[in-house]
Design a protein around this nucleic acid. Structure first.
Lengths: 116, 116
DNA sequence: TCAACTAGTTTGTAATGCAAACCTATTTGC
DNA sequence: GCAAATAGGTTTGCATTACAAACTAGTTGA
């Protein structure tokens, strides 16, 4: 289908997953059954608003499920990744591996450290 | 600085490089001294307009250099990656490697394909 | 001459990422 | 008891973006 390390594969990356904020969310979710909104907010450093909107997009895409309930008397939003979400993440990871083969590693990680 | 495979590193990805179209351009450029606009257009599958604007952004960011000349009587635009571009690409690659460690590989790529 | 092609650039637009402002309910200070 | 602060999010507004359609400028073919 594609040559090993075919860099053009990069164009097929799932944009829903490719966005750093959402990739982070998915990665965190993939390591737990259920994650609280507030926890994600802290881990990710995203603002509530930003997190909320990324959450909605992932939910709309079927990659995560959002459960709303109450802890005591306060609202509590929890997220979990769906099977489709896991597949999307695994697939993204695969594509990323392919893409990385298409990006040349620096010839020699020489001792000189570049300043930019 | 960051734990091995720290997934929050994903938030530090260089957006100029992270965009698939531009990553593709950079990857192609990294493997040649000089690449023609038309060649990139075909390899990437990008429209001329899209390619042109990504090219401008990469140039504005100092990651590539654009040389305009003539071949016979027709205009010819050629691109080449700059040292800064190479560094940015190498750095991106490094970060990507870190990020990938934070994305769990599917436990076992079992033979059964599930649908939900 | 004029249509069609080459080689790109500019323009228009829909979608995106982001945070400020907002909303609703609870808790705390006095 | 009630104003202010806090918790837990959502909605709105905005600046940026990716993308292709339309355009520009020159060239070749008939």
């Amino acid at each position: 289908m594609s040559a090993p390390g075919d860099i053009t594969e990069v164009m097929a990356l799932d944009r829903l997953v490719h966005e750093p904020a959402r990739l982070l969310i998915l990665a965190v979710l993939s390591g737990a059954k259920l994650v609280e909104f507030g926890f994600l907010e802290q881990v990710s450093g995203l603002s509530k608003g930003n997190l909320s909107s990324h959450m909605s997009k992932l939910e709309a895409g079927g990659l995560i499920e959002v459960k709303k309930s109450f802890r005591g008397k306060r609202p509590l939003t929890e997220l979990c990744i769906t099977p489709a979400g896991r597949r999307a993440l695994a697939n993204y990871r695969r594509q990323l591996a392919t893409v990385m083969q298409g990006i040349p590693a620096p010839a020699a990680p020489t001792k000189r450290r570049r300043e930019e």
